[in-house]
């Protein structure tokens, strides 16, 4: 039996929205609990009775009820548009990330990798809009830091992704998973590290959260946001974790390939790997202090970029030799 086209499209759109709304909440809740336990606390315990599982839903309700403040001096249209612009790139990115083998992807694209890297870069515009339109020196400083950081880390991110695309000989995300072999874990290890770290910086997670830096810049480019718009920015951050974790999984950890039953349980392997990488994102946040702005740039240009370039040479050498 074949489904009518409209039904299939509807199911795929619904799937993307479900992933877009559910996975970030799961990651956020995990962050609450994991961070708490890593600091010897319990974290949320009341919301939803059992170990605070409904904490983020309660947070959402709270955010909706809060007053939506727009600063008097702000550029109102740009200020109000920024949260939406922050979310859209990640929504587009989720569309092309494959969950399992075959048809288990919202929209298979020949150039999925390229699309993802392109739209993730658009997120900077939202940050600049938010920071500038708030008419506040802290937000502007945060936005400028973010722009400098994102422009710098885009380079190692793209280079590391290029390495794996070169190894697989395709830009299609599904194609890369198809071509992936377990020994690539070793071969592409430097690229994996570079991609993960640059991805952390792209989504401005600690230790690369100098643009937000609550001890220096109040809350960076988010200082003036309240209520639902602030919640949208937070959602964008957590969707960002999911997207970066999923990309790391698909590009470097073999996506749906697991120890057994790849064809049937592929989606499970993907979700497990995404969960594991998300855990590492949270783990790194809890363990390390924030990098200073100059250290941040130094780490990118003197650490990640040379490693990524060396990895490209290595990939090309192995590719030519075999």
């Amino acid at each position: 039996m074949t489904m009518p086209v409209w039904l299939e499209i509807a199911i795929r759109v619904a799937g993307v929205f479900a992933a877009f709304l559910v996975l970030p909440l799961v990651v956020g809740q995990t962050e609450h609990k994991v961070m708490a336990h890593m600091q010897g606390r319990l974290g949320p315990m009341y919301a939803g009775r059992f170990h605070g599982w409904a904490q983020l839903i309660a947070d959402g309700v709270k955010f909706v009820q809060k007053e939506d403040v727009t600063p008097a001096a702000a550029d109102k249209h740009v200020f109000k548009l920024a949260p939406a612009i922050a979310l859209v790139p990640y929504l587009v990115a989720i569309i092309v990330i494959p969950l399992g083998p075959g048809d288990l992807v919202a929209q298979p694209l020949d150039m999925g990798l390229f699309l993802v890297l392109a739209v993730v870069g658009v997120g900077i515009v939202a940050v600049l809009m938010a920071g500038w339109a708030s008419a506040n020196k802290y937000t502007l400083l945060g936005a400028l830091r973010a722009a400098a950081q994102l422009l710098a880390y885009e380079l190692p991110l793209v280079l590391a992704a290029a390495s794996v695309a070169m190894a697989a000989g395709t830009l299609s995300l599904s194609g890369i998973v198809e071509a992936w072999r377990p020994w690539w874990l070793l071969w592409q290890l430097p690229a994996l590290g570079v991609f993960f770290l640059a991805g952390l910086a792209e989504i401005r997670r600690p230790p690369f959260d100098a643009p937000i830096a609550d001890s220096e810049l109040v809350f960076g480019y988010l200082t003036e946001y309240t209520g639902l718009r602030f919640a949208l920015f937070l959602l964008a951050e957590y969707v960002g974790i999911v997207v970066i974790a999923a990309l790391t999984t698909v590009l470097f950890l073999g996506g749906w390939k697991g120890p057994f039953a790849d064809a049937d349980l592929g989606w499970l392997w993907t979700l497990l790997k995404v969960g594991a990488v998300s855990f590492v994102v949270i783990w790194v946040r809890v363990s390390f202090p924030r990098l200073r702005v100059d250290q941040l740039q130094r780490f990118c240009w003197l650490g990640l970029v040379p490693v990524a370039l060396a990895q490209l040479v290595l990939t090309a050498a192995v590719k030519v030799a075999t």
């Binding site: 994991v34 336990h37 890593m38 600091q39 010897g40 606390r41 319990l42 783990w283 809890v286 363990s287």
Partner: peptide
């Protein structure tokens, strides 16, 4: 941090 996570919270 990992060790703290798996030991009992205070």
């Amino acid at each position: 941090t990992l060790k703290t996570m798996v030991s009992r919270a205070g």
